[in-house]
Amino acid sequence: MSPTTPPPTTPPPTTPPPVGGLPKHALIGYLHASFANGSGYLRMADVPAEWDIINLAFGEPTSVTSGDIRFQLCPVSECPSVETEAEFIAAIRAKQQQGKKVLISIGGQNGQVQLTTTAARDAFVRSVGAIIDRYGLDGLDIDFEGHSLSLNTGDTDFKNPTTPVIVNLISAVRTLKQRYGADFVLTMAPETFFVQLGYQYYGSGPWGGQDPRAGSYLPVIHALRNDITVLHVQDYNSGPIMGLDNQYHTMGGADFHIAMTDMLLAGFPVAGNTANVFPPLRPDQVAFGTPASTSAGNGYVAPPGVQAAVNCLVRGASCGGYAPRSGTSPGFRGLMTWSINWDRYYGWEFKNNHEPFLNALP
């Protein structure tokens, strides 16, 4: 399939965009920039104008604990159509001139990052800053998966973490935010296991024996809540998760998106402890992630289901059997997908359905 760049479908906004330069409801996607897979390579210049945040996948460490993050464009041997670095940078500038944000995403499925030492923390700050400066990027996406984050035994208070990999990540991101200032865009794409599962289980638990990764993003999100631009949890590749209705919700339909997102908009007691509540995020900080196609991840939901979930969260309509504890959230930020490449492969179903839908929201 040959990539094409359709013309923008939306007129310029009549009111200035909010802080950070993002539209009220944003379309967010990952671009396979450093590797090829079955979806094929897509040049930055050919990314359609509908995408508001483009996350470059992925920056990865030289070793799990080095903190030294490297990013390079897909090799020609793997991606014959890859652009030159100069062309890539020029295309990023063109996107930014259109008001788009281009971020480096750190981690991914294969990029385990464990900042176990202050030396690794400092290497992370130095190397991520070098990537941002080299390509002139707008910010950073934290996509730590697998075993990157876990809580040491006895680290039971998300408000006061003691585990080095958690403390050092918070410190590193704060340093980068301070370096680049108020316009620095910070997003995160944790899996449900690291966030919503924290309603039931946090770390290894009071008696040990639980998976120490359970809820382990919560202290990071909480510490950086004043700095986070958008948190878009991956509502895919997930097991059943208990919602605020104390029922288990299973991915693959509107209900899962509603229940998982409501937890972030309403807040929740961590590990069931009503004296230890994770406070809600602002609606403009919250989006949710869904696969662009059946090939992109488990838990694909066709456009009508995704839009039913958003209508429930934003308007209080189409809620099915789940009533959001958070009420209605007109400021809900939008939708993230893995990935822009997979969306192109499947004829732009995600973009073509959801961009006009988001623009039509109140």
Rank of each mutant, 00 (worst) to 15 (best):
D284K: 07
S66G: 08
L313S: 10
I92H: 11
D133N: 14
G209I: 08
F58N: 05
Q114C: 05
E60A: 07
A323F: 00
H32L: 12
T328S: 12
T118M: 07
E85P: 00
V314A: 07
S63D: 14
L103R: 10
F357P: 08
T117F: 04
Y236L: 15
H32S: 11
C74L: 12
P269E: 07
M263N: 02
V173T: 08
D343Y: 11
I228P: 08
D138M: 09
V301H: 02
D227Q: 15
T116Q: 13
I166T: 15
S171P: 03
D235L: 02
R134E: 13
R282P: 00
G209M: 08
G289W: 12
G243I: 03
V167A: 10
F288E: 09
T261S: 15
G321V: 01
N55Q: 11
R344K: 14
Q234A: 02
V277F: 04
A317E: 13
Y180G: 08
N353D: 14
G347Q: 08
L281Y: 12
H222W: 13
T192K: 03
T337A: 04
L169D: 01
V233D: 10
P7K: 14
H232T: 00
V47T: 03
V277M: 06
L197P: 00
R344E: 09
G305I: 09
G267W: 11
A94G: 01
T62L: 12
A45T: 08
I69F: 09
P16T: 13
T4D: 13
H32C: 07
T261P: 08
E355K: 15
W207F: 12
T175W: 00
N226H: 15
S326T: 04
R315D: 12
C312R: 02
G239I: 09
N168V: 02
T261N: 10
F124S: 05
W348I: 01
I54P: 15
R282L: 14
P269H: 04
T290C: 08
V64D: 02
V220T: 12
T261I: 08
I69W: 09
T162D: 01
I104S: 05
I132F: 04
A172N: 03
G139E: 08
F124D: 02
R282C: 00
Q285T: 06
V113E: 01
N152G: 15
T229V: 01
N273P: 06
A26L: 07
